[in-house]
Design a protein around this nucleic acid. Sequence first.
DNA 1: TCCTTGAGTTCAGAAATCAAACTCACTAAG
DNA 2: CTTAGTGAGTTTGATTTCTGAACTCAAGGA
Lengths: 152, 152
Amino acid sequence: MRWSEIDQQDCSVAQALSIVGDRWTLLILRDAFMRVRRFEDFLESTGAPRPVLSERLKTLVDNGVLEKQQYSERPDRFEYRLTEMGLDLWPVLISLLRWGDKWMPDKDGPPVIVSHKGCGHVVVPELACPECGEWLTATDMEAHRRRSMQRA
Amino acid sequence: MRWSEIDQQDCSVAQALSIVGDRWTLLILRDAFMRVRRFEDFLESTGAPRPVLSERLKTLVDNGVLEKQQYSERPDRFEYRLTEMGLDLWPVLISLLRWGDKWMPDKDGPPVIVSHKGCGHVVVPELACPECGEWLTATDMEAHRRRSMQRA
DNA sequence: TCCTTGAGTTCAGAAATCAAACTCACTAAG
DNA sequence: CTTAGTGAGTTTGATTTCTGAACTCAAGGA
C-alpha cells in the first residue's frame, strides 16, 4: 500500500493522518496555533522548504483545516487561519507537546507553556473520562474494532 | 531546514515528531496499541512496505518507544512491544482517532470504539484542566513561548 | 530432499523532498 | 519613470525516500 492510499483504510487514525500526517504539516498547524498566518512567516517558523509549504497549505485549505483570507488588495495578499476543524486539532498538538516535554525534556525547561484562561493556571492538559471524570492512561482503556478491517 | 533536522528545533512538538512524525510510524503505533506485535502482522495491518517497516521499527526501538523481545529461540524470533514511553503516546493516538471520527465520519459509524475499564462506558476521552477539572478546548487555552526560538 | 514460515535485506525504478533561482504584482525611493 | 524591495508563490534539477518485487537466512515439517 502507498502512503497516498491510507485514506482507504477503515480507520479514523488513518483518515486523520491522510490529512495531517505528511512531513511538516503538524509543524504548520503548531505555528498556526501560535498565531502565525502568513506564508513567509510559516516558512521561517516551520523551516519547511518553500515548495513543500506551498503544497501543504493548499491541501490543508482544500481539506477545510485552514482557510485562506484576503488581508490586502493591491497587491492581493492572503493569510491562513485555522477553521473550526483546524482548531479541533488542538488535542493532537497538545498531546505531542506533552509527550515531547515528558520524554525528551530540554535542560532549560519546556520551551512552550500552556495556560488555562478560565482558572489562570499553567497546565498540562490530561485526558479524562467524559462519563465518570477520572483521569485516563493507556492501561485504563480498551480499544475495540467494531468490524473487520476492510477497504473503506 | 531538512526534515531530518527538526529535532534541532527548540520545540517539544518538533522533538516528538522527530521520533513519531515519519510516514507509517503512527500507524505502527496505532496497531501496537491494538496488540499487534510481530513483523509480518505489522506488515499486514499497517500496509507499510517491508523495508520501511523494518527501518521504522528499528528507530522506534532505538528511541525507546518499542522494545524487541524474543518469543522463540530456534529459530530466533522477536516481537515488538510498547514501552512505558510508547504507552504514553496513547493521548496522541486517541486525539487523532477522535478527530478522524468527528470530521471524517464513516457512514457505518466509528470503526473502533474505546471503553474505560474503570466505569465500563464506551467513551470519547477529552482533555481537561488538571487544576480546575474543567473540560478544555483550543479557545480556552493560551500557549506561550518562554524563550526566543533558537537552535536547541 | 524439498517446501514453508517469519523476519528481514537488496535492488532498481518512481515519487517526494530540497535549495536555489526565477516569476509576478505591486509599492516605495530616488 | 527607473530601480530596488516585498510577499507569495513556481520552476528546476539534484538528492533522498519510498516502493514492490525478488532474494536471503535459519529453522521446521512432509
